[in-house]
């Protein structure tokens, strides 16, 4: 038994506006849906990537330039890696956007944190895409 005053039932006040006012975008709805759809696809792409890279056939010990050259000689693994790159980066970036919105309270801070996030994400996606498409097994 606690001696603190027993609070009455807590409740959330009823919404003050009963209707959506004005024209609002559905961006947050699509972003919510995208997190779920990309998540389902990423289960297959990323978990298989991890099993191949870390467990099968010697695992991480057998990875080197020649190994990557062998894999990227096949369009199948090129497309696999490309989809994994885009989906994981967009999913992760969208997730971090939510987290910044949750914790950064000042508008300025929010704005700049998101700018850094978007620049880093765009840079990473472009770099990864170029690396897959311009890969040269005879380099160096």
């Amino acid at each position: 038994m606690s001696t603190t005053a027993q609070p009455g039932p807590v409740s959330i006040p009823a919404p003050r506006s009963t209707q959506r006012t004005g024209q609002r975008s559905n961006f947050e709805l699509y972003s919510w849906l995208f997190m779920r759809i990309s998540g389902i696809v990423l289960v297959f792409l990323v978990l298989a990537h991890l099993v191949i890279m870390n467990i099968l056939d010697g695992g991480v010990q057998r990875i080197n330039f020649a190994f990557v050259a062998g894999r990227w000689s096949s369009p199948f693994w090129q497309v696999w890696d490309l989809m994994m790159l885009w989906l994981a980066m967009l999913h992760g970036t969208n997730g971090l956007r939510t987290i910044i919105n949750d914790y950064a309270e000042r508008d300025q801070t929010r704005f700049w944190l998101k700018m850094i996030l978007y620049v880093a994400a765009a840079f990473t996606i472009i770099l990864g895409t170029l690396v897959i498409f311009t890969f040269d097994p005879n380099i160096g």
Binding site: V68, L85, M89, A120, T124, G128, L130, T134, I139
Partner: peptide, 15 residues
Amino acid sequence: LIVHVLDTALVRVSP
């Protein structure tokens, strides 16, 4: 993942 894309990008530098 960001670091991982950077380390993989080294295949464009040299084996």
